[in-house]
Amino acid sequence: MTSLTTTVSNTEIAPRSSLWRHLRHVVSENPVTGVAFLLFAMFVVLAVFGPYLVPFDPLQTDTGPALQSPSAAHWFGTDHLGRDVFSRVVVATRLDLLISVSAVAISFVLGSVMGCFAGYFGGWTDRITGRLVDTIMAFPLFVLAMGIVAAAGNTVENIVYATAIINLPFYARMARAEVSIRRNAGYVQAARLAGNSELRVLFGHIFPNTLPPMMVQISLNMGWAILNAAGLSFIGLGVQPPAPEWGIMVAEGANFIISGEWWLVIFPGLALMLAVFTFNLIGDGLRDLVDPQRRT
């Protein structure tokens, strides 16, 4: 009987490699992913250590002459109150990332739980979730977010909630689709036979397998969430001056474009663009990282 073992392993299989090696492979396979990971790391460093790295206090006025163009002392110039634009752009990273990360986290958790139930159990859970999601999608999303913030009050938390709500449908729909195609897969049946309760089958077996496509959604959504938060601030809802935030900075600087003070708008705008760009690029890389099949 033991002898039966020898015949099967005729295919050579590479040994299981570490996560680090896998990361290196993912990056080398697609250099763009490498760039995205580097940019992402930069944003994380800026968000965590930003306030300690910058040359000036972002709120301090008259750090130099007002409306000075970029120079050696003020790399991105100064604004109409003489605040250092570079410091403000860097420090704003934390607030913008915080808003988008928490908004996306909330919508990911709530949306995928709703979607998982709808996709797995079907019936009335599916109908209720479906109609709820349809209702949210029926509004122009940005207008809905505006309405929520205007009604609930101009606070950072409310921006987070509003952004989370408008992103919810994407996760709910995706989770529902991904779960329902796996609902009767062989390994799911096997899990039921192994004595897993329905909830454990759903969250222990099916849900982890939906993560790779969800990762792409998350990273794309991060970009949208940042844009959304900045957009709300731009129109005067949400983050209030003088807090450094990319959207407000663009809004404040917009008045000065005509008079030629372009650096007030360009730099926060570039930061915003770069952040969205990074999150959009990083999606495929993240998916490859969480997919064990890619880790040959």
């Binding site: 062989g186 390994y187 049946q189 096997a190 036979l193 192994a194 004595g195 897993n196 454990r200 099949q293």
Partner: peptide, 19 residues
Amino acid sequence: DSLNPRWTAAQSIADPLNR
């Protein structure tokens, strides 16, 4: 199809035991 792609062979075999 009948093995969870995210689980190792040992995890799959241990699943019924754990439950």
